[in-house]
């Protein structure tokens, strides 16, 4: 009897929080399936897509299916979410590849080779975990100006210009650099846990050090790489501050920037359907990654926290 009451109380508490977390998200999704007129009449009603529209005869009220199409089309095409999405995919993918490759190389060298200064270099990388991004924001902004000038001067004979301000390249470089400390922490721990005899066996069979890394160690470290990739993906995909400071051209905005400006315009024009569709477009990729890879994500959080 006591245990029955206990479990009822437990479930009540858990379900209340579950509702608090899920209901706003469900609200966003259902409203993205409704026309602005529909939302205006009742912001919390069920979509007419399911219940059927009570205004079938009124030509000014769009049919439910039409409304859904219109919201997403307006968001994706007219409000350039397709562009922002592509930009975010490009920036995130390039940053992820960059940070994983560089961190894997550095971590492997730090984890598997003994040399003077090994510990010092590892700690040097780790000290980055304590540096808030805001500290490097301002100097980087000005540093980019003269780095661009110097780089352009060097590359001009080849016909290139180096632009770090208002460019994906600048953003990617920053994201890679800022993600290095955490990724190196996770991957060094991972490489240390792999058996060292594998390397010796590879060398015996005539593999070079590079070959051992590429053909033996890298494939074995895939779980670690996946974990690091997910955590970095979530951080970079949602990053706002650096994109806000560095990107000016509307065409180069990433999703968080695009959402902020589109949502402001949409509220001004009371185009609620468009705004909610924009929310959904931003939310869905990270939610999907979380749902599919939640086991690796959980492990990543634990590893990061215990070692950090």
């Amino acid at each position: 009897m006591v245990s029955a009451i206990k479990s009822i109380v437990t479930y009540t508490i858990l379900v209340v929080w579950l509702a608090a977390v899920v209901m706003p998200l469900v609200w966003v999704i259902t409203n993205s399936l409704r026309s602005s007129q529909e939302i205006f009449r009742n912001p919390f009603g069920a979509p007419w897509l399911i219940t059927g529209s009570p205004y079938v005869d009124e030509p000014t009220v769009p049919a439910p299916v039409q409304a859904v199409k219109e919201n997403y089309q307006k968001a994706w095409v007219e409000s350039h979410f397709s562009r922002y999405f592509a930009n975010s995919v490009l920036v995130t993918t390039a940053s992820l590849i960059g940070v994983l490759v560089l961190s894997a190389m550095a971590s492997y060298a730090l984890a598997r080779f003994e040399f003077r200064g090994n510990r010092a270099i590892f700690l040097y990388f780790l000290s980055g975990l304590m540096i808030p991004a805001q500290l490097v924001l301002v100097p980087l902004f000005f540093q980019f100006t003269y780095l661009s000038r110097a780089g352009s001067w060097l590359l001009r004979p080849l016909g290139f210009e180096l632009q770090l301000h208002d460019s994906f390249f600048g953003l990617i470089v920053i994201y890679i650099a800022l993600s290095l400390p955490f990724t190196i922490l996770v991957l060094t721990g991972f490489f240390k846990s792999l058996p060292g005899t594998l390397r010796e066996a590879g060398i015996m069979d005539g593999c070079s050090e590079y070959g051992v890394f590429w053909f033996i160690m890298l494939p074995l470290s895939r779980p670690g790489l996946v974990t690091a990739a997910i955590l970095n993906f979530l951080g970079i995909w949602n990053e706002y501050l650096f994109a806000l400071v560095l990107i000016n051209t509307p065409d180069k905005k990433t999703l968080p920037l695009g959402l902020a400006s589109v949502s402001m315009q949409a509220q001004y024009r009371t185009d609620w359907g468009l705004m909610f569709a924009g929310f959904v477009i931003v939310m869905v990729p990270t939610l999907l990654v979380h749902l599919v890879l939640q086991r690796q994500l959980t492990r990543g959080i634990t590893v990061g926290a215990l070692k950090g």
Partner: peptide, 15 residues
């Protein structure tokens, strides 16, 4: 519960 409670954490803070 574990998976659902985590939802808000993966959504963009701007959104």
């Amino acid at each position: 519960f574990r998976v659902t409670f985590f939802f808000p954490n993966v959504i963009s803070s701007v959104a």
